[in-house]
Amino acid sequence: MSEPRWLTAEEQQVWRSYQAASAMLRAHLEGQLQHESGMPPSYYEVLVSLSEANGRRMRMSELASVLDSSRSRLSHAVSRLEAKGWVRRESCPTDKRGSWAVLTDSGFSALAEAAPGHVEAVREALFDQLTPEQVRQLGEISEAIANGMRPRCQAVREAADAADEAAELVSPVAATATSG
């Protein structure tokens, strides 16, 4: 086994600063959304993605991909959004296993109410702290990190989806075996 590539003192300091800033920013924005709008960020992200989609609708599999989410996790979130009346599911006429998530007028209104406060919180917490040059650099750095992580995240998501599908196949068989 090869020797670990330990972080330099400078890299260690940058890593810890990045972790602290990311955690504080995430906690602040999650708290703002929950307090002012009564919704967690995952719901907000689903509503935003659907609001930007053609006809305010997306295939569930495409929505999961856009949100970097497993289909199972997305399905649970959409179920909760359905219960609020913010999203509805529609069957896909060309694929019996597929379905669409559709943003309702009520969901669009909830998003329209939440967005101004959320955007202001993002602006105050992030962009107001940076110069225009730092904003550009942050964009480039963030894109480089995302591009490097995308294949790894895709592999993890695919493994989670495969495990969920396997569990769905086993579940009816187990139920039948134990009911007899």
Rank of each mutant, 00 (worst) to 15 (best):
P151C: 04
Q129K: 14
A27H: 14
N147F: 07
A163Q: 14
A114G: 14
M149P: 00
S22T: 14
S70C: 02
G55C: 03
A114W: 08
W100S: 03
M60F: 01
F108D: 09
A163T: 11
L29V: 10
A112S: 14
M24P: 00
A144T: 10
R136N: 02
K96N: 04
G55K: 11
L111G: 06
L74T: 03
L47K: 05
S69A: 05
R71Y: 05
R59K: 10
E120K: 12
L29G: 09
R152E: 09
G55R: 10
H118C: 06
E143H: 08
G98W: 11
S42T: 12
E62N: 05
A110G: 10
R59W: 02
Q137M: 11
A114L: 11
R88N: 01
A83Y: 06
H28L: 06
A112I: 02
M58G: 00
A53T: 01
G38S: 15
S72G: 05
G98K: 08
M60L: 08
S37W: 11
I141N: 04
E143V: 03
L138N: 14
V48Q: 12
K84S: 08
V135D: 07
E124Q: 15
E124H: 13
M149N: 05
V78E: 05
R123S: 09
R150P: 00
G139C: 05
R152S: 08
V48W: 07
V119W: 15
H35V: 14
L126T: 07
A21F: 14
A83M: 09
S51P: 00
R73Q: 09
F108K: 07
V119F: 15
L25E: 11
E165Q: 09
Q134V: 01
R26Q: 14
G85C: 09
T131P: 01
R73S: 07
S109H: 13
Y44T: 06
E52P: 00
S51W: 01
R136P: 00
L130S: 03
P41I: 12
W86G: 01
G31T: 07
L25F: 08
A162Y: 06
E90F: 10
S61V: 06
S99Q: 13
G55P: 02
E113T: 12
T94D: 11
A125C: 10
E133T: 03
H76I: 15
E158T: 06
V78G: 04
R136K: 13
L111D: 06
A114V: 10
L130R: 05
V46F: 07
L29E: 10
A115E: 14
T104G: 02
A64K: 04
E90A: 14
S22M: 12
D164P: 00
S70F: 06
T104M: 03
R89I: 11
K96D: 06
R73K: 13
S70N: 03
P41E: 08
G117T: 13
V102M: 08
R57C: 00
R57W: 00
S69P: 00
G148P: 01
Q134G: 03
L50M: 02
R57L: 01
Q32E: 14
S51Y: 02
L138D: 06
L74S: 04
